[in-house]
Simulated scan of single mutants.
Amino acid sequence: MNTRFLQSALTAALVWAGAVTPVVAGDYLPPAKSDDGWSTGNAAALHWDTSRFGALEDKLADNTYKGITSVLVVKDGALVYEKYFNGSDATQLNDIRSASKSITAWLVGAAIDRGLIPSAQAKVYGYFPDKQPVQHPDARKQAMTLEDLLTMSSLWECDDENQFSSGNEERMYVSEDWLQFALDLPIKGFAPWMTKPADSPHGRAFSYCTAGAFVAGAVVERATHQPLSAFAAEALEKPLGITQVHWNASPLGIGMGGGGTRYRSRDLAKLGELALDGGRWKGKQIVSEAWVRSMLTVHAQARDDADYGYLWWQFRFPVKGTDEPVWAMSGNGGNYVFVMPSRKLVAVVTSKAYNQRYAHPQSQEIFRDYVLKALP
């Protein structure tokens, strides 16, 4: 029997029994209310084209989109769409891989807000006197700032997209001391075909470097005198009502600010809403608005089609014929938290399509062709 028919029959039965409020179109049901702080809304009553959600569910049912585990949509602070797929549910802790880097940016900001780090211009090597002298000594390394790490534009020879790079993350993982590995990296050279920082947009030559995000997290640990997971719980997670989370650590116990944290989908949406509302959750300031402005400002050009803030990506997506900026937490497998300020919109897509070429394109397609096209 057709899956959509079964869903329709179930919805009709629930409506007849008085268990749910009838909705305007299709098989759409509003998200269930919970005690996690989220308000919920009825997208059908708010004039969304909920047939787009139905079409998306058809694509997931026939495996056109593979490995997707959840899609959530928040508009004007209310959760209006929430569905789980491929055996997942609302309790699932999603391994969001490199989307974790954006959480590290939040934690740097929280430490700055508390006066524990002076600013994003703080010198990185000064936090690690016990790790010096380092290999490949260079005055430019000693001048390296947190902002260099947050914008993926340090002068370390570190490129996760180049298997031959000295700083490729896979090389870091097979060493015991990840921090020493990163601090010892040589200064990169710029071949004739490479764009130097002075000639790059925003004066920064972007190079994706997980080791840099890891070191940024290590700076937070040194500045706060506590594990990254403990500071995250105090400064970010508990104020947001996030009670279930998993953090990884390096072999020597330093929090892994570069990837692999695990959050529930609704809690990921909270991180998006926090960015959308200037660092506030339910009217309470969690991280300063000044930090959010800095974090969500373009500081480097990552690719022809993407810019970069402080460990957040910026893309452009079409809405009703106009390309609009969208900030995003992004991780391997196609894990995303999309934030579109112009529409007061947050969308979460979680996925287990790790290391698959189609992972990122399909998650972005879901956001572009189904979430955005459903907007009222």
Rank of each mutant, 00 (worst) to 15 (best):
L6H: 11
L6N: 12
S8N: 03
A9D: 00
T11D: 04
T11H: 03
L14W: 01
W16S: 05
T21W: 02
K33P: 01
W38T: 10
T40S: 04
N42H: 09
A45D: 14
H47L: 08
W48S: 01
R52D: 01
L56G: 00
A61M: 04
D62N: 15
N63G: 07
K66N: 03
I68E: 00
K75C: 03
V80P: 06
V80F: 10
E82W: 11
K83Y: 08
K83D: 13
N94H: 15
R97A: 04
S100W: 01
V108R: 07
G109I: 07
G109D: 02
G109T: 10
G115I: 13
G115P: 10
Y127I: 07
F128P: 00
P129L: 14
D130Y: 02
K131L: 13
Q132V: 11
P133S: 04
P133L: 07
H136D: 10
Q142G: 13
E147T: 09
W156K: 12
D159V: 11
N162T: 13
F164T: 15
S166Y: 14
E170C: 10
D177Y: 09
D177A: 07
D177W: 07
Q180E: 12
Q180Y: 05
I187A: 10
A198G: 05
A198M: 07
P201I: 11
F206I: 08
T210Y: 03
T210E: 04
A216I: 07
A218N: 02
E221I: 05
A223R: 07
L228G: 03
S229I: 12
A230T: 15
F231D: 02
H246E: 13
N248D: 10
A249S: 15
I254Q: 12
T261W: 02
Y263K: 14
S265I: 05
D267I: 09
K270C: 12
E273G: 08
L274E: 01
L274M: 09
K284H: 13
Q285R: 14
I286Y: 03
R293S: 11
L296F: 06
V298A: 13
G309L: 06
Y310V: 04
W312K: 07
W313T: 06
K320V: 04
V326E: 01
A328N: 09
S330T: 15
G333N: 01
Y336P: 08
F338Q: 09
V339G: 04
M340L: 15
K352F: 00
N355V: 07
N355G: 05
Q362N: 05
F367I: 13
D369P: 01
